[in-house]
Nucleic acid binder design. Structure first.
Lengths: 332, 332
DNA sequence: CTGAAAGCGCTTACAG
DNA sequence: CTGAAAGCGCTTACAG
């Protein structure tokens, strides 16, 4: 009935008459244990609802089966969507996840001591806004770390990224093929590699056709920022024909700004985003965007992490996955 | 450089020349330690970046400083929004959070053994769809548990709820005061107390005015379900003037269905929801709704939990917080 | 195939 | 005010 009364390996040992060592080995299917002994131990353990205390096990094995998930601001729904998939994928491997939220203004470096206390097996860093010092976790503290959609500084950590550049280029090509000429870009946070790479790809795609970028605004990766960016673009002496927003959540704000100003989408201005968050497919927005292959991305990240947990001497690696253009009503 | 090289209390002990016991006491500010000793220990610990190994500490204190957060389907953005606030509030208390995701079709009962392994201090259960057996965690396994927006079966666990009934009633009153007569309700999952209580309140509010419910549809608490419910209502021989959706995410789908059918909102049909998720305030939806006081709700939940962690003999308690009507363009 | 013993890194009575 | 010792619940060489 009480927490302190959970059965221990000693309980099983006393009931079955074999030693704790044997209980431990029997339960983890160690080959040297006789079938008869194993069966008896397993039966008693099951009957008592016994499971080895994960804390004690972690202390001796130096493996906790828990990985840390580090995120910053979650107002972009893309993060929660990743989280849900991640939990599903980890459950398949019997791994648990501990959350670490870095509030605005703080940095990964600030919580490293806390992180280190918990004997985590590894870390996934999912915020594009967090400093590159996240790589320190791996390099200086021996904690296997994989960055998601973030370029590791000094190659000190692993990373899995959606090919942001290719995605930006794809959008440019899509617009240009449809004869759009006055192309605008709405940037996310200036310091993030995702925004810069998506922009670089977009620029490359435009320049390949001999044209130049028509206008640029900044939306800081937020809905409200996207809304303001939309108003900024509409205030220009001449309006763009199409806008590529560096992520979806800004694109939604942008679409609402256009709607508020009576602009017809896509007839007057076409809009495309990046991520394919759930809201992108809601009829109110119906956003053309680059769909990030989240499951693949996370699967690769988990694989990379699992390999480093198994062998910490493995060198860092950076992997790319490719997003697909999803055409919807906002640009078609 | 390596994980196994993290300094231990023994490291500090050797450097400072005091015993491990003294190191431990000095670091936690035990009053019996002399100021001089404490300062020296603290200085060395800081210099080495030492922090007590949480796993070892948990093993002896039987306190981990970690609580479990149990959620089901996260497609309703209300859950991620809670999660972010929760992380902020827990950080203030130096508590960590471990996530447990129950996939559709599974139940809390299925992960109880896993949960129990981790020496969690307590549990917060945040899914309205999970069985009432969540209360077992507290009652049968001694794990302090607080349900969020869920009525505990048999009073075996604590709970904090938004006053769902009062919210439903408030919406009814709001509609009736504006002279709306043909009121419809869109239900969430049939088995959830949130949907039932919101409906009961709505019905009570309607009946208080001598009228009756005009129409009812079911949206299963999803965006798509809300969309279908909208089409269902429009297919009726006579249309309602106003619809109360048991949560926001369904209301968004509903609004998109109305828009798709060319229905003017709120002129022809007014719409109200419940929760006040972020998307409710996006201009595309501009949804009138009951704003749940998330921070208060979570703060109360944490308090209830902290009390039970400190004294497990405390009886279960159920607390209510009150939502506020937030009037936006979808019903005004 | 099995067991006794040591040890993971802490905390906490118990002495002094 | 401080230390030696025991112990939290496991796992894992080491013997046999």
């Amino acid at each position: 009935m009480d927490k302190s009364r959970l059965p221990t390996s000693d309980t099983i040992s006393r009931i079955t008459g074999v030693s704790k060592s044997t209980v431990s080995r029997a339960l983890k299917g160690h080959p040297s244990i006789s079938a008869a002994t194993r069966e008896r131990v397993v039966a008693v353990a099951r009957e008592l609802g016994y499971a080895p205390n994960a804390v004690a096990r972690s202390l001796v094995t130096r493996r906790s089966g828990v990985i840390g998930f580090i995120i910053g601001d979650m107002s972009n729904p893309f993060y929660p969507e990743q989280l849900e998939r991640l939990l599903r994928l980890l459950a398949l491997r019997d791994m648990q996840l501990m959350m670490f939220h870095i509030p605005p203004g703080q940095d990964v470096a600030d919580i490293i001591p806390v992180l280190l206390q918990y004997q985590l097996d590894g870390c996934l860093v999912a915020s594009v806004e967090l400093s590159s010092r996240a790589g320190d976790l791996g390099a200086r503290h021996g904690l296997p770390t994989v960055l998601i959609n973030r370029i590791p500084a000094n190659h000190h950590a692993c990373a899995v990224l959606c090919n942001n550049r290719a995605g930006g280029e794809r959008i440019a090509r899509f617009f240009v093929e449809r004869g759009v000429r006055r192309l605008a870009f709405v940037a996310g946070k200036a310091l993030t590699s995702t925004s810069r790479d998506r922009e670089a790809g977009f620029m490359a795609g435009i320049e390949a056709t001999g044209t130049a970028l028509f206008a640029r605004a900044v939306g800081d990766y937020t809905f409200e920022g996207g809304y303001r960016a939309g108003l900024d673009l509409l205030a220009l002496p001449e309006r763009p024909d199409a806008v590529f927003s560096a992520n979806d959540i800004m694109a939604l704000g942008l679409l609402d700004a256009l709607r508020a100003q009576g602009v017809a989408v896509p007839a007057e201005i076409a809009v495309a985003g990046f991520d394919d968050i759930r809201a992108a497919s809601w009829p109110a927005y119906d956003l053309t965007t680059i769909t990030q292959p989240i499951d693949t991305l996370l699967l690769r990240a988990i694989d990379l992490l699992a390999q480093r947990i198994a062998d910490p001497t493995l060198p860092p690696e950076t992997l790319y996955v490719t997003g697909q253009l999803t055409i919807r009503g906002s640009a078609c």
